[in-house]
Amino acid sequence: MYTVPLPRIGTDLAWRDAAKRLIGAAIPPEDVLWDFGGEMGELFATAAPLPPPSRRIKAPQSFIQMADTVVWHKDPQRFARLYAMLWRLRHETGLMQDRADQHLAKLRQMEKGVNRCKHKMKAFVRFRDLRQGGDRRSFAAWFEPTHHTVEPTAPFFARRFADMDWMIATPDVTAQFVDGNLSFHPGQPKPDLPKDGAEALWGAYFCNIFNPARVKIKAMTSEMPKKYWKNLPEAQHIHDLIAGAEAKVQKMQDAAPTIPPERAQRIRRQLRQQKGDDQ
């Protein structure tokens, strides 16, 4: 029996390395326990060292890509499921193209969950200005992802916000970007971030880009689930926007047509004159 400890930071590489060694030594899935972040405790700590890396292991590119994503899922079974799939791939060539295989379907579903979580993180992280002075501006955010997605998503923020320093703190892992260097640290409780005046402007924008004549609450919540709202400054307005929508539209419909302002006549005359001049 092998127990494989997997760290919270760098999980992907650690899993891949262990899987290569195990598959190389033909260790079947039932002889492997995966211990993420020391969650199993002392009980299983006394296990055999992993087999040494052996001959080149071949796995389809599509599997490696999928595994690189699935390792960040929160399901404790993810590592075992991936290893079981890798085990089958030794003999079942073409398995990766079989969309009707139940085990593959489950892994694909997990992959989709992680990708969605990464996408939502890119969308819903909200930075606050720390106003620290100095050459580079610095910002920080608190975020609560569904899966372990800070590490695979942080490079996106590094590509986008390279001319400023930033931190994304989460209960799981904290990402820091200082002077162009990205690093990861253990998670932390929610930090006390300074208030940011831009949030009021953003709120004003959110309220006014909303069209009260087209209320579609389900379409909103399916893409921006409520679990994210508490860390989104604009979400505090949603309740009032929905409550006031109908009255706003009614007011537009009830209003009697008005007489155009005087300006309108003047401008219309000018436009007509110009048109005449052109012809």
Binding site: H119, K122, A123, F124, F156, A158, R159, R160, F161, A162, D163, M164, G180, F206, I209, F210, N211, P212, R214, V215, K216, I217, K218, A219, M220, E223, M224, L232, E234, I238, L241, I242, A245
Partner: peptide, 28 residues
């Protein structure tokens, strides 16, 4: 595009991102 060179701000990577949704269900 990206700003990895540290001299600018911003990136675009093929698929766009909806940063919020208004109660009309439309992407912001």
């Amino acid at each position: 595009r990206d700003s990895r060179d540290g001299k600018g701000l911003g990136s675009t990577e093929g698929s766009g991102i909806c940063h919020a949704y208004a109660p009309d269900g439309r992407c912001i």
